[in-house]
Simulated scan of single mutants.
Amino acid sequence: MPIDHLTRTPVPSRESLKAYLDDALITGMVATSRENNRAHYRALADGERYYWLGLDLGDRWTDESRVLSVMAERCGVDPDPSRTNGQDTISSERCVAALDRVAELLRKAVAQRQRVLFATGHPAGMLPVYQDLARALAAAGCEIVLPPGGIKLGGDSGSQDIRRIGAVAVLQERGHLPHTHSPEPMRALLDRLEAGGAELPDLVIADHGWAGAAASRIVPTIGFADCNDPALFLGEAEGSLLVSVPLDDDVEPHLYEPMTAYLLSAAGLTPA
């Protein structure tokens, strides 16, 4: 499906989107290796907090085979516990089914004029997706929650701060927008909102630790996650996340445009 940045991306059908996602390697035989996936599942089961993405998983997921089982069910990785190498997979059917669930939540957000916060730890990939969703929700009457200025990580002398790019919260470090799994930016953002007397968002749409930290604060959260980020899928299985959308979360940004067009159309939203 050709993409022209100067014209509106056509809305694909459900079946054509599934085929496109596989062709674009957003799903299907994705770039993430089986070795990497299994290492992350094992580390999460071993209690390494980095892989919990801000969620409190307690001692409920100490069996790697249970983690793999959830990832096979919700993401579409190979369920074979004996397989440890090669490329792994993400199911286009599971991805689109999750997008359909997100669309229903977006319809609800518009109907209730919810306050929605967007954030990403993948600014080189997912940022434009969230920007497009934020513009469409704002045009439909939702309030987009913007991160307050001046939130520094690591104290006033810290080299990192939280900024917004097109209404999406991102982490900034020395003039760069780094890829981050850390939950600390979202924790700091929510703390600042509360300290300023603001209510927490009605809905968060995010990834990585941004999503996990919001869900851990009992904020309704939609997460987008790769097959090597099992925590958000475990959170969905336990009910702490509303939906976790399985996809390769770091392909070239323009490749997500048909997916975004499908999601906006399914939600009854017009691109803004």
Rank of each mutant, 00 (worst) to 15 (best):
T7K: 12
P12N: 10
E15A: 12
Y20W: 13
Y20D: 04
D22K: 11
T27Q: 01
S33M: 06
A39T: 08
Y41A: 08
Y41R: 07
A43S: 13
L44D: 07
A45H: 06
D46K: 10
R49D: 12
R49Q: 14
L57G: 06
G58L: 02
D59L: 13
D59H: 15
D59N: 15
R60T: 13
R66M: 12
R66W: 05
S69W: 02
M71N: 06
E73A: 08
C75K: 05
D78A: 07
D78E: 11
P79G: 08
P79F: 04
D80W: 11
P81Q: 07
P81R: 06
S82N: 14
R83W: 00
R83A: 08
Q87T: 00
T89D: 09
I90A: 03
A97M: 11
D100Q: 03
A103Y: 02
A103G: 11
E104Q: 13
R107P: 03
Q114E: 14
R115I: 03
R115M: 03
F118G: 08
A119T: 09
A119P: 06
A124T: 00
M126F: 14
P128V: 01
P128H: 03
Y130A: 01
Y130Q: 05
A134P: 06
A139L: 10
I144H: 03
I144V: 14
L146W: 01
I151V: 10
K152W: 14
L153F: 10
S157Q: 07
G158F: 01
Q160A: 13
I162C: 01
I162K: 01
V170Y: 07
E173N: 11
G175W: 15
L177F: 15
E184Y: 14
R192Y: 02
A198H: 12
E199R: 04
L200I: 06
D202C: 04
V204T: 03
G209M: 02
G212P: 03
A213I: 04
R217G: 02
G223P: 08
F224A: 09
S240E: 06
L241I: 05
E252G: 12
H254L: 12
E257L: 14
P271T: 05
A272Y: 15
